[in-house]
Design a protein around this nucleic acid. Structure first.
Lengths: 208, 208
DNA sequence: AGACTTTCTTAATGACCGGTTCATATGTCC
DNA sequence: GGACATATGAACCGGTCATTAAGAAAGTCT
């Protein structure tokens, strides 16, 4: 019963026909398409064209459309989310953290070489019921961002640069709302200058 | 050549088989479906099911999908936009106008008998290139809202309840951004209480 | 060289897309 | 009772959707 030699099916990266594309580069292109057109607005054919990957390879390597999208969102988090992460971590005070987070994102939202606005905010807000899971996936991501912001504010209280009476949950919700609104303003053609003015106004709400 | 009697083709509303539905009621249902699922997320079949109208009638009466959507948006403007319009018109000061506009919309966004958030903000932000016109149609609507808000602020200066030094364009952009962000917060499950807290914070940015 | 492994091309799947055709049903007018 | 006008139901149009099956191509292994 036990065969003499069992071929362990460990997939070899060196044998077989070499693939004609780089996985990481292809994923970057997928991210950009999803970012520009949204989840439901992007067809597999759009992805095939942009990624330079044929359809069967796309499916064998990335699974289905939804899995590819989730990977694209994770990549987006790593590449673009760094602005937020670094601002929150590096700033010397809670106030500076929030302001720099907003300004760094506003700069990214209006960069000329990228789709406008935030992929996580824009790429699937409404849609058909069969894609509900994708929307909740993104919503959870947004809520995580709001929690991270709240935690940074709590640190501000501990550090003594934010009054202990400050309502951190309220503040986190407000600045998250502003950040999300900035994505829509970006989509509507707002200039970097206009976004900066909006942030100016938003910072006036900081507790004294 | 000239016939004795030329039948003038004025379509009669009384002759022929009477339609089995009310046009206005059907349009309300179409609005709700587009509001809940967005433009691209709504199929003609979804509309047929919700409106109680068969497909040929839908096309003969409302044109194509895009025309129906535009009519649905106009209806939304009349039904739901009234909150904004009335707040801006009736409030005794610019500040009260902005605050009441935000609070009225926040109430509407979290009403249990309606889809959450604003149809004009949410129903088509990203999508395939062929529906670009729909997105610009909505973007123009949003920009009109921001202009209307700016005009109300200018009136506040004339009325003397807003300092002449106030930057009305900046303020209008800021409060529009907050309003748009509230739609996303609503979609993410924010309670009426949470939206109210966000508005509390936003009003702290009012110029003194 | 030939066995083996992986990716490639090609084409197909069944379901659904927005939109239309056409015969039939249901009403008013003369 | 027709003739006429409008609405309805069902079936259909070409096209696209996401996904996959089958076999040819292009490498490394022994």
């Amino acid at each position: 019963m036990t065969p003499r030699k069992v071929k362990t099916k460990k997939p070899s990266a060196v044998m077989g026909r070499p693939r004609g594309f780089d996985r990481d580069e292809a994923l970057v292109e997928a991210m950009r398409v999803f970012w520009a057109r949204g989840y439901e607005g992007t067809s597999i054919q759009d992805l095939v064209d942009a990624m330079g990957v044929n359809k069967p390879s796309l499916y064998s390597i990335f699974g289905c459309k939804e899995e590819l999208f989730r990977e694209a969102v994770e990549l987006y988090d790593r590449i673009e989310g760094i602005h937020t992460t670094r601002s929150l971590e590096d700033a010397p005070s809670a106030r500076a953290a929030v302001e720099e987070m907003l300004r760094a994102n506003a700069r990214a939202y209006t960069a000329s070489d990228k789709p406008r606005g935030c992929m996580i905010v824009l790429s699937s807000l409404l849609g058909s019921p069969e894609n509900e899971r994708v929307r909740t996936f993104l919503a959870e991501n947004r809520l995580r961002g709001e929690r991270a912001l709240k935690q940074r504010l709590e640190r501000g209280i501990l550090d003594g640069d934010l009054p202990a009476s400050a309502e951190v949950g309220k503040l986190a919700a407000f600045y998250t709302t502003v950040l999300e609104g900035l994505s829509i303003q970006s989509r509507d053609g707002a200039s970097a200058k206009k976004l900066a003015a909006i942030i100016d106004a938003a910072m006036l709400a900081w507790p004294t």
